[in-house]
Structures are given as structure tokens and as C-alpha cells.
Design a protein around this nucleic acid. Structure first.
Length: 625
RNA sequence: GCCUCUAUAGCUCAGCAUGGUAGAGCGAAGGUUUCGUAAACCUUAGGUCGUGGGUUCAAGUCCCACUAGAGGCUCCA
């Protein structure tokens, strides 16, 4: 018996006409639509008999449990086999399946036998949405399931076993672990395993990204394609510059690759087969193109054309994609957390063997930790780690895995698979849990044992043979937009705890605002501005005809860290200024030199880019979002 | 993609249950004020009430579809 299983959003079918004389009679030929359903196309073959029905039902049930759908449609489909059973036997067996699955499923339907039918189907886009099985009679009463393989594999492989890895290195089954109540780690676990939500409200970062004129939705584009206002653009540039520099220091070689590729390229095609079709497609002349969803293809296709010796490994290629495109389902898009177009640093390391890959894996873990901390996201307070690997990898690398637990000093959520289903054998992520209890992955790294061969990337090893490298996929920061999301959500959390909301100084568009008391103080204000400018401190002047109090208020609501008011006193004195420092909630008198020193020490090694708006506030358009 | 909710001036929102020609605050423009650490004062202009259809003598208000957003589901290379 041949079975094709399709996990579908819906199927819509309509009997058209009888195809055979023995076709069953129907009360009506009306169209029928079933939502959220497993459609089982079944062809009954010559050797099939009642003895295999139990096994067929078991297969169906197993599949339904894996994908968590208990709505079944049995759909007679002769075209799956060229060795068909008689009509009568086929129909009998199908009815039997219908009866026996009745107890196993919540709903079971059967499309009429012997009819020409038209149908419309929408198959879901996940790896297991499509599945084929063959169930055959074995000697005697036993049956064998050739798709054994597929069904069992899928089940075993995708059945995750969850643990918590403690900093000491103990691996504790998730149900035995005692969580700290209300901890972010607990929320992460709820998110990953139980899909629980703690709060229901609009994510704070969405309001903030608009109010701070960082980013906004662009209704004239596609969902998840944002517009970034001047301040947002500057913030992105700064983060991008920072991450790129860190990767350079690590040894990454920056390249640039196309945003679109030929869908019919063989390597890409086979990669596709592994993943749901979630890409943007473009038809251009006779070519079917798609927009990249990561920098993988570009770098792999490039590396394939390199001549590489083992002496040059690990080879690290890096690109910051602007953009990577993923056509996520519309209902999944949220503010800056989940986008359809995003900028992602993607650094691949081509390694000669698993030992070198592991060594590199550790280095990149340290790199990611440094980057995340440098961005102002605390690895101890804001981040929880998820580690995913196969049982096999764990058994061989217990000590290795333990070192990560020791290093991160926090419990780690572990997902283990019995067999490898994806292209990687081990993967970790840093997850940020936001104010709604939703988790979003930032940094990640994977050890990929499949794509070296798939893309025919070769290196010559010390013994002169050609080999395929093991590839690491690392994004030390995660998507740039998601970093901004995390920073904004973090400020909202601060605010809930009574702290003052602020972005890191080095990411603030305006670092110092000068407020002249009256227009006669403008000239002196400009002199100070020039001095600060020389020292790479982004400074602007609020020259608008408002009261000082009002200008202070606006500067505070823009979260500007330092404010200097320039009036007669300052012009006369020329040395000391009263600085209003937002985070310190204080005003103090200091010299310009001291202020510059103070700011430089806080910014330390972070990149500088000039102001991205006119210096004078009177010259700026109002971006009221 | 599915279910539920939302869409009124540049921004935040009222008006809608009971259909009868559109309101406030902030912002903007013009003017007065040259001002010392979180909102000076006066005047004026701003709206095909998301888009398209329908019901009605009459629709911002009721109904349908679409678009965009939010929450949930699902998913997340």
C-alpha cells in the first residue's frame, strides 16, 4: 500500500463523475472543504490485505502525533502505484482504514472511491509536511514498513528530548529541573516547549521604535519590510560597523555576494528540498530567481571556486547581508523581532575536520559573547542559551559541551535528537526573552556536516586527497534589527523596574545637546559644538524659539544623555558648564575637557559615525510617528 | 496562512450601543515674548473618518470584501 501524507492548511475537493461502475453512490456532488488536515493519498496494491490495516493505522497515527494534527482525510489515489489491487478490494480496505482510524483521530473523512474528483490543496511549509510511506505484507502475519525509515526516522529524529544543562555540567531531564519562578530562563523554556504566554499586550519595542523615530512599518511595501528613519539608520550603521570590526579582528574575511539566485541551480535546489519554501520568488525573463534568506549560498558558491589547502583552514568568510529575505507567514511578523527583510552578519568557517571545527566553535562562542556584551546586552541578565545536538554528538563530546555550561555560568536548555535531521550536528543560540515572554534568537553557531559536499567545496588535505570541509555558520550578534529590538525591549524592562530608559551612549544619535537660552547665545554654542565635533562626539544645537524648559523636556524625551544649557553665565565664564546627565539624574558643573574625557571613556572602543541629521534642530523635519 | 480585535487631523485619542453633514489636546504656520534646567501666550490652517462596494431618504456610525497593524495559533534555515 502506498501512502502520501500531506499536512495541509486545507483541502477542497469535488466529485465530478463516476470513473468506474462500482463507484460508491453519493448523496450530493457538492464541494467539500476541510481545514487543518492530514490528507492521506492512498493507493491499494495487489498484495495488500486486511492484515496490514493495523500497521497502516499505526503509521497514520504516528505521523499525526509528530505533526500534532488529528484531522484525517483518506483520499483514494490510484496514481501512486502501477500494481493496483481490484476496485472492490481497494474500496474495502479503505473503508476499513476509515473505521479503524475513527478511534485514533478526532475527525476522519474519506473522499469517495471511484470518482473523478477535482481538488485544491494547500500544503503547509514545514519539513515534515510531506511524507511518503509504503506498507507491505511480510511473511506470515508480520508486516514491514519500508518507509519505516521515514516514519520512524522522522519520529525519532524530530522527537526532541529536553534537558537542562547546569553550569556544573549535570544534564537534568527537563521535568526534574527546579526552575526559579518568573525567571527569564523559565519563560524561554515555556516558549520553546509549551508555547505559553505570560502577558498579552503590544510589544513595547514597537511603540518605542516609532516614538524614538528609529523605524516604522512601510505599508506600501510587503509586510516585515521596514523603513528606518535617520536615527534608526545611524543606529544600524553603528551596530553593523561594530560587529564587522569584531569579526575582522577574529579573522573573518569580508565578501559581498548577490541577493538573488537561480532557483534551478542544482546545489541550491537540493538545499531547498531540505527546507520549507519561504523565499521571495522573482520571475525575470526566463529565469526563476529567489531572494537569498542567508549569506550561505553566496559564500559556498564562492568557496567552491577557491583553491584551498588544509594549511589555509580554517577559512572564515564573512558578509553582513542587507538584506536577507524570508517570507515569514504574515501572522508571524512583529515589529523588529520578526521581519521579512533583515540585515544579518553571517560568518562561515570552513574547517578541515571535526576537531578543528570544535576548536573554532569555541573561539566563535567567545566572539559572540564579546559582541553581545559590547552591544549592551548582558550575557548573564538578558540572555539564555539553548544548545541543540544529536545524541551521538553528545555521547562523543560530553566534556566539550560541559565547557560551554561552565563558561556561561547559567543553566542551558538542551534539545537532543536521536538522529540528525538537519544539516548540522550541533547548534547553540543566545535567546533574548522580551517583555511579553517571547523568545528571539540572537547569536547562533552551528556545525554543518552536509553542505561542504553539497556545494562541492573542496580542500586538499596533507595526504594530497581532496576533502569536503566542515562548515560553521555563525552570526555573532544575530540580525541587526533584532539587536535594536532587544535593546528597546530591555529599556522597557528597565522602565518597569523604575529605572531610567536609555540607549547606550555610543548608539544615541545625539550624544550632547546644546541648548542656548536665547538667540544671542547661539554663536558661543557653535564654538562649543565645533570643539565637541573635533572629538567625535555627536552634538547638536536646539536653536528653536522655545523656552529652555521645553527644550530640556524634548531632549529628555529623546533620551539624550548629556544636555548643556548655554546662557550669559557660560558665555561670560567660558570654562565651566552645567551638564545635565540623564542617567545620573544630576546636574553638575564641569569643564569641556572633563566632559569630553567622561564621554570618551564611556564610549571607549565603540565606533563613531557623524550625526545623521542637521546640527540645528530648526532645520530638521519633524518625524512624528 | 487561519481565528479574534483595531483603523477618525502630522501625533495621541473622543464621537459609533440608539444612523441626521466632524471634536479635543499636542504638533504645524503666523504673531507676541529673548526666556536658566521636563510643556510661555494669542490667532489660523489642517479630515473623501484606511480603500472599495452594499443597506438607507440619510452612513464616521449598520453589513460585506480588501489593505495595513495587534494578539493568539502555526512557524522560525
Amino acid at each position: 500500500m502506498r501512502i502520501l501524507l500531506l499536512h495541509s492548511d486545507f483541502i477542497e475537493y469535488q466529485p465530478i463523475s463516476k470513473e468506474i461502475q462500482t463507484a460508491e453512490d453519493l448523496p450530493s456532488k457538492s464541494k467539500k472543504k476541510i481545514d487543518e488536515v492530514i490528507v492521506a493519498f492512498i493507493a491499494v496494491e495487489k498484495d495488500d490485505d486486511e492484515s496490514i490495516i493495523a500497521d497502516v493505522c499505526k503509521e497514520l497515527k504516528t505521523y499525526s502525533e509528530i505533526i500534532k494534527c488529528d484531522n484525517l482525510l483518506i483520499y483514494p489515489y490510484a496514481h501512486l502505484s502501477s500494481d493496483l489491487a481490484t476496485h472492490i478490494k481497494a474500496q474495502t480496505l479503505l473503508v476499513l482504514i476509515e473505521k479503524q482510524t475513527g478511534d485514533l483521530f478526532k475527525n476522519v473523512n474519506r473522499a469517495p472511491f471511484g470518482w473523478t474528483k477535482s481538488f485544491n490543496i494547500k500544503v503547509k511549509g514545514h519539513p515534515l509536511a510531506e511524507n511518503a510511506k509504503t506498507v507491505r505484507k511480510k511473511n506470515g502475519n508480520n508486516t514491514e514498513s519500508t518507509s519505516e525509515s521515514m516514519a520512524l526516522k522522522s519520529e525519532d529524529v524530530l522527537k526532541s528530548i529536553w534537558y537542562v544543562l547546569e553550569p556544573g555540567g549535570n544534564l537534568i531531564p527537563i521535568n526534574d529541573y527546579k526552575f526559579e519562578k518568573e525567571s527569564l530562563f523559565k519563560k524561554l523554556v515555556d516558549n520553546e516547549l509549551y508555547k505559553k504566554r505570560t502577558v498579552v499586550e503590544i510589544p513595547p519595542h514597537v511603540r518605542l521604535m516609532k516614538r524614538l523615530a528609529i523605524a516604522d512599518y512601510e505599508p506600501s511595501s510587503d509586510g516585515g519590510n521596514m523603513r528606518y528613519y535617520p536615527k534608526g539608520r545611524l543606529m544600524k550603521s553603528l551596530i553593523e560597523t561594530y560587529v564587522t570590526r569584531m569579526i575582522h579582528d577574529y579573522g573573518g574575511i569580508e565578501v559581498e555576494t548577490p541577493v538573488m539566485y537561480d532557483s534551478n541551480h542544482p546545489s541550491i535546489q537540493s538545499y531547498f528540498n531540505r527546507f520549507p519554501a519561504r523565499q521571495y520568488n522573482i520571475q525575470s525573463d526566463n529565469k526563476q530567481l529567489f531572494l537569498r534568506f542567508a549569506a550561505c549560498f553566496g559564500q559556498f558558491l564562492m568557496a567552491k571556486d577557491f583553491q584551498i589547502s588544509y594549511k589555509q583552514l580554517p577559512l572564515k568568510l564573512y558578509e553582513l547581508t542587507r538584506y536577507s529575505f524570508r517570507r515569514e507567514k504574515s501572522g508571524e511578523l512583529v515589529g523588529l523581532r520578526r521581519l521579512r527583510a533583515f540585515s544579518m552578519p553571517d560568518c562561515h568557517a570552513f574547517c578541515k575536520d571535526i576537531d578543528q571545527a570544535k576548536e573554532e566553535f569555541v573561539k566563535r562562542f567567545e566572539l559572540s559573547l564579546n559582541v553581545i556584551e559590547g552591544l549592551g546586552i548582558s550575557s548573564s541578565d538578558d540572555i539564555d542559551m539553548v544548545f541543540r545536538f544529536t545524541t551521538d554528538f553528545y555521547e562523543k563530546n560530553k566534556e566539550f559541551i560541559r565547557t560551554f555550561a561552565t563558561r556561561i555560568k547559567k543553566p542551558i536548555l538542551v534539545e537532543m535528537w536521536k538522529e540528525r535531521f538537519f544539516y548540522f550536528i550541533v547548534k547553540w543560540e543566545f535567546n533574548f526573552v522580551d517583555n511579553l515572554g517571547k523568545a528571539a534568537a540572537l547569536s547562533t553557531d552551528q556545525i554543518d556536516v552536509e553542505n561542504g559536499e553539497r556545494y562541492k567545496i573542496e580542500f586538499v588535505d596533507s595526504d594530497g586527497t581532496k576533502k569536503y570541509p566542515i562548515i560553521l555558520h555563525n552570526s555573532p550578534s544575530g540580525a541587526i534589527e533584532r539587536v535594536i529590538y532587544a535593546l528597546l525591549e530591555k529599556t522597557a524592562r528597565d522602565s518597569n523596574m523604575g529605572k531610567i530608559q536609555a540607549l547606550p551612549l555610543w548608539l544615541s544619535h545625539t550624544q550632547i545637546r546644546i541648548i542656548p537660552v536665547a538667540s544671542k547665545h547661539l554663536e558661543f554654542s557653535e564654538k562649543i559644538l565645533v570643539e565637541l565635533d573635533k572629538n567625535n562626539i555627536r552634538t547638536d544645537i536646539d536653536d528653536r524659539e522655545f523656552s529652555v524648559a521645553k527644550k530640556i523636556r524634548e531632549a529628555e524625551s529623546e533620551w539624550i544623555h548629556f544636555i548643556i544649557v548655554i546662557g550669559d553665565k557660560e558665555v561670560d565664564d567660558g570654562k565651566e558648564f552645567v551638564v545635565r546627565e540623564r542617567l545620573a539624574k544630576s546636574q553638575y558643573s564641569t569643564s569641556l575637557a572633563n566632559l569630553i574625557k567622561r564621554i570618551k571613556s564611556e564610549i571607549s572602543d565603540k565606533p563613531y559615525l557623524p550625526l545623521n541629521l542637521p546640527v540645528y534642530l530648526s532645520k530638521r523635519p519633524i518625524i512624528m510617528v
